[in-house]
Simulated assay, not measured.
Amino acid sequence: MWGGRTRILAVAVLAAAALSGCGRSVPGTPVAAPGTGPVVPELRGVPGEWVGSYTCAQGETGLTLTVEPDGRTEFAFYPLVTNGAARPGRFEMRATVDGERVTFTRVRWLEHPSGYEMVDLVATERTQQLMRGTVNGSGCSSFRVDRILS
């Protein structure tokens, strides 16, 4: 299908596009990592992996929040040594920022253990290394996560 002349022409067109700056980043414009959506400027400082715990009716439970640049977030929970009865699961959330407050709103289950409900989080305290706040759900109280540096 691709003859010699057609292949050479296609390579020449691609080379010209690359040399002309097609697809280059504009300085000062946030760029999303491959496979993620556009960067939401308000989320600066939030994307990344955060690990800690939250407390609900089942007791203190391990928590990993994986926040993408576009606000998509995975809430993964699991048992801790201090609470082996907790069951593992995961759901998708959406992160939004209002001033210093970060709100994580439940979207859909990814792995749903029987008897568990999705919750929302509101981080009322946030630094580059820590988020802590309230867990909005039946029988829930608080959460704290620390940023994992890569």
Rank of each mutant, 00 (worst) to 15 (best):
D98F: 03
L149E: 14
T96Y: 07
A17C: 15
A16H: 08
G3Y: 00
S20Q: 08
L110N: 04
G62T: 05
L9M: 12
G62D: 01
R144I: 11
F75E: 08
V97H: 03
R147W: 00
R132V: 07
W109S: 00
V145Y: 07
L130R: 03
A123N: 10
I8R: 15
R5D: 15
G71F: 06
G89S: 04
V135H: 08
D98E: 14
G139L: 07
L80Q: 10
I8K: 15
V39C: 03
N83Y: 06
L63P: 01
L14I: 06
L63Y: 01
Q58H: 02
A95L: 03
V26E: 13
L121W: 07
G115D: 09
R144L: 11
V11Q: 12
Y54V: 05
F143T: 00
I8C: 12
R132Y: 03
W50N: 01
T64V: 15
G48W: 02
L65G: 09
W50Y: 11
D120C: 07
Y54Q: 03
F91C: 05
A17W: 13
V119R: 02
S114P: 10
R5P: 08
C22T: 15
A17L: 15
S20P: 03
A57P: 04
W2T: 14
V26M: 09
A95F: 01
E100F: 06
E60T: 03
P34I: 00
V11R: 08
V81D: 13
P69Q: 06
E125Q: 12
R87K: 15
E117Q: 15
V67P: 00
V13M: 13
S150K: 13
N83Q: 09
W2F: 05
M93L: 12
G23C: 09
N83R: 07
V145D: 06
E42V: 08
V46C: 10
S150T: 11
T73G: 04
A123D: 04
C56K: 02
Y78C: 11
Q58D: 09
L19H: 08
T103A: 10
G59S: 07
A95P: 06
I8W: 07
D98I: 04
G99M: 08
P38D: 12
T82E: 15
R101N: 07
T124Q: 10
H112L: 13
G21Y: 01
G21R: 12
G35C: 10
D70A: 01
L14R: 12
A17V: 11
V107Q: 10
A18Y: 14
I148M: 14
C140H: 04
H112V: 08
A86G: 05
R87N: 11
G137R: 03
G115L: 03
P41M: 06
P34T: 04
R5Q: 14
L63N: 09
T103E: 00
V46S: 00
L130E: 01
G23D: 08
V51D: 08
V67L: 04
V102Q: 00
G4D: 14
G133Q: 04
T82Y: 02
W109D: 02
R126G: 01
G37K: 01
P113S: 04
R7D: 14
E68F: 11
